[in-house]
Nucleic acid binder design. Structure first.
Lengths: 326, 326
DNA sequence: CTGAAAGCGCTTACAG
DNA sequence: CTGAAAGCGCTTACAG
């Protein structure tokens, strides 16, 4: 910067003003400074800027993923990170990706935010037992959650309407005349899994049917295992609502191995509408949750929070996608 | 920091020394400073540190993804980002995720690196036409590529042995006595696609068979389309080597729709061994590329480059995984 | 082993 | 509209 100022024959103040596009600078000076910047290939030092402005133009995307890597194996993870990155980029923000699974990494994340490395943060897929949201909300930084948190009031969030979506799914199975409708639930410390399971129960209860529940953890393998157990518990089961597509894919494999035809013997419906749902055999009927929209809304919620200091939760609608499996 | 020094009754120099764990500090002073830090909940400001040390402890993961999002829809993307993040975290580095697709974003990335925001960078899935590697290597920062670059000599890289892997795949089809072996290639501006195609050609040539090639872009849908074209071009085709699993999954769908049995009528083999390969019907025979290992090696290559100033390319072996489809 | 001082590279009132 | 000066919050020779 010193070199640029010398080259242009002006003060560093003027160089700074030109670079930051301040209107109060004479066109002649602007020209000569721009020329010097171009010639010298000058790029302002980020750390110095951050220090003096007390802002970093960086947003953290914090993914709470256990060591086993449950979350980040999910295509939802990639979609959310990608969509959020895009949207943040459009807003001129840099993205700092932070994986937080273990206890040490939680402390590390806390320190990272406290050190002022970012202007705000987006929390992705926190389970209800995770202490991170509470800890981070105490930093006073603007933070929003992608997905509703178990503890209310900590921060604004964006989520899809899990209850409505799951209701659509189960209702579709009922409409088909299915008699014994089971569900494969997600991990119950996650609000999405809780809400989808509650909707399943509520919808069945109205028809006098009993609930048939197996527990999964949102992975393919857990869906396959849960389906095996379901078949054992009730060989007459003729429909399954899996709380996400990955588990539905696992369930399809088990049904194939067990010689059950889908949808003839057993109807299967998932949740999320990931791309893979189009490529199963038979193609998966599912509930579309607007993931990309959700990520976009999450970013916008954060930007609102950053500028206005307040923001209210957002719930997005779901849609039933009928394919071959139910 | 000022407050901590005052509280502890020592100079800021001593506070700094304690925080940075320098050995040359009296135990008594260390104690009292630690206490003050704890009481005040002090966390050093990152920007100030970065400014004075000229280091950021941050590594950029730069993903070159066209606006359509080809790369980031691939489960490989998530695996690489996750494995690299983990490894970087273990080394005490922060991760800055940068998506670079368009021309403007390329400029933005260049400026970002030039501004000194990161100590080094990892480039992921660059296609051969991408000018980014050349541009970035001119910054003089330590940069490594995950995947061999089309332009040699720009920077060290880590890749799996694409030629050997593809040879294994085609050889397996030959061993089965397949007569008309086609391939679905990836986009030819990517070195991985080039190498896999070259191996396919080389291996077939030795047996006097002719090549039957359709072009895809590493997505499921392109695999489905390519398979359709292959069937049209040569209805007698009895085996297909898809250059990645996603395209193989697409091909399976087309074959099912066309009423061809796999592997009876047509054998299908993929490349990558993503988790989804275990859940196709029939389960996908494929070549395992050690993705996680590769990411780990990429990070270690960068760390080597950072500390020693030099590093040499790494090639990792592949493995044939036989399942049901071939 | 400790402290006073300089300085990292910017931005921003302030005076002109 | 422009420049000199102060200051952002740290680290690091340097002297003691």
């Amino acid at each position: 910067m010193h070199a640029v100022a010398a080259r242009a024959g002006v003060s560093k103040s003027s160089v700074s003003r030109v670079i930051n596009g301040e209107p109060t600078v004479a066109p002649a000076i602007r020209e000569i400074v721009m020329a010097a910047v171009a010639e010298l290939g000058y790029v302002p030092n980020g750390a110095a800027r951050n220090l003096v402005t007390q802002r970093t133009n960086t947003i953290a995307i914090i993914v709470s993923d256990p060591p086993a890597g449950l979350v980040s194996d999910d295509p939802m993870f990639a979609m959310v990170v990608r969509a959020a990155s895009r949207e943040l980029e459009r807003a001129g923000k840099q993205v700092s990706l932070v994986l937080a699974g273990s206890d040490e990494s939680r402390l590390r994340v806390e320190q990272y935010l406290a050190a002022g490395h970012v202007d705000g943060a987006i929390l992705v897929s926190m389970d209800g037992a995770d202490p991170l949201p509470a800890v981070l909300s105490r930093t006073g930084l603007p933070i929003v959650s992608h997905g509703r948190l178990a503890t209310p009031g900590l921060m604004p969030w964006v989520d899809n309407d899990n209850h409505a979506g799951a209701t659509q799914a189960v209702q579709h199975l009922l409409d088909q005349g299915r008699r014994r409708i089971a569900t494969i639930s997600g991990p119950l410390d996650m609000t999405a899994a809780q809400e989808r399971l509650a909707a399943y129960r509520d919808t069945l209860k109205d028809t006098g049917r009993r609930s048939i529940i197996a527990l999964g953890d949102f992975t393919r393998i857990s869906g396959a295992d849960a389906m095996r157990q379901l078949l054992e518990d009730d060989p007459e089961v003729d429909a399954v609502f899996a709380a996400n597509d990955l588990m539905a894919i696992g369930a399809l494999r088990t049904l194939r191995e067990a010689g059950r035809r889908v949808p003839d013997d057993v109807a299967v419906i998932g949740f999320d509408d990931i791309e893979a749902a189009l490529y199963t055999a038979p193609a998966l009927t599912t509930i579309r949750s607007p993931m990309t929209d959700q990520a976009v809304h999450t970013v916008q919620l954060l930007l609102t929070l950053l500028t206005t200091g307040t923001a209210t939760p957002v719930t997005l609608p779901t849609e039933l996608i009928i394919r071959e499996s139910a």
